[in-house]
């Protein structure tokens, strides 16, 4: 098992411990169902139903008085945004702890994907609601348009002061590693002054290779079917069509098969002139990378080179091939 797979196994074991756990003790919603919040909600929805807003008209309906819109169910348990008390935003319950574990592992994105609600009865002003939320399931790792991630389903059951269930809902979110664009945007927002390199496409099929680079290791994908080496990483062997693969660590030694020196246009994040080479690795496959530590006019085909990893931007190490003669 590779280092990367081991890390993933450990992470998955950690998140799966949360499945089946309650978010915390039963949560008594902070406010009784009330007319003011119902009015604000209806304003936001453009809903003018008198059953929610006009006590006299509501008295004439099947409810015999004001009720809350059924789709407000979840809003009664929302915790708000207490700016004066940051401790209330800390991961003090299991759901927040679970999200924190995802954040730590780089799955910082979150998006709601679907919800399903059941209404046993409509709520009335004065109802005190208790919510009990359970972490119901966590999916396998999925590749999505937003990035690689996991779907988390929580289920909340709402009951009144008599302990009668008034409704329940399930809520599914995707916790994901933001794909390229968003990450680049985050970085440029943090340090707009210094241009950074355009990141290479990073996804399910090649993420492992780039992550090894961050640890200073140059890996080569190796077909488990026929043993052929291949680069760049891809899901299927071009020789035998096997989708089973492993990887070996390259020595980093090789020779220049071909090269070019870029002068124009100057792309932000690179130094110019910028030598780019095709390097034949001694293990027997070819890789495209920058050539460094030598004047561009001294580079020649067949030149012996050795790989070293340099920090090009914060959090980005890349392989550079240095002349060894």
């Amino acid at each position: 098992m590779s280092e990367l797979e081991k890390k993933k196994t450990e992470f998955e074991a950690r998140i799966r411990e949360f499945v089946g756990l309650p978010e915390g003790p039963p949560y008594l919603c902070p406010d009784a169902v009330n007319e003011a919040m119902i009015r604000h909600w209806c304003d936001a929805m453009g809903d003018q139903n008198p059953a929610y807003l006009d006590a006299d008209a509501a008295a004439e309906t099947v409810h015999g008085g004001l009720v809350a819109p059924p789709t407000m169910l979840q809003s009664w348990e929302m915790r708000g945004y207490p700016m004066h008390d940051a401790t209330r935003l800390l991961p003090q319950n299991n759901q927040r702890k679970l999200h924190a574990a995802f954040d730590e592992a780089g799955y910082t994105g979150v998006v709601a994907t679907d919800t399903e609600q059941e209404y046993a009865r409509y709520l009335r002003p004065g109802d005190r609601i208790t919510a009990e939320t359970t972490i119901e399931s966590i999916s396998e790792e999925k590749a999505t348009a937003l990035g690689i991630g996991y779907f988390i389903v929580t289920r909340s059951v709402f009951s009144d002061e008599q302990g009668e269930e008034v409704g329940n809902l399930s809520f599914r979110v995707l916790k994901f590693k933001p794909a390229q664009e968003a990450q680049a945007a985050q970085e440029s927002a943090a340090a707009p002054a210094k241009p950074t390199r355009i990141r290479s496409p990073y996804g399910h099929d090649n993420g492992w290779w780039w992550e090894a680079c961050q640890e200073g290791r140059l890996l080569i994908q190796k077909c488990s079917g026929c043993g052929e080496l291949r680069h760049p990483p891809r899901p299927m062997c071009g020789s035998c069509q096997s989708t089973e693969w492993d990887s070996i660590e390259a020595s980093g030694r090789g020779s220049v098969y071909s090269f070019t020196v870029l002068h124009y246009p100057p792309i932000p994040g690179y130094d110019f002139p910028c030598p780019v080479g095709l390097i034949d690795l001694e293990e027997g496959t070819r890789i495209c990378a920058n050539i460094a530590g030598v004047e561009p006019e001294d580079i020649h085909i067949g030149m012996k080179v050795e790989c070293m990893f340099d920090d090009v931007d914060e959090g980005l190490k890349l392989p550079f091939f240095y002349m060894v003669e």
Binding site: V62, E116, Q117, Y119
Partner: peptide, 8 residues
């Protein structure tokens, strides 16, 4: 009014 029982 009061008729919706399930919605997802």
């Amino acid at each position: 009014d009061g008729r919706l029982t399930k919605y997802g």
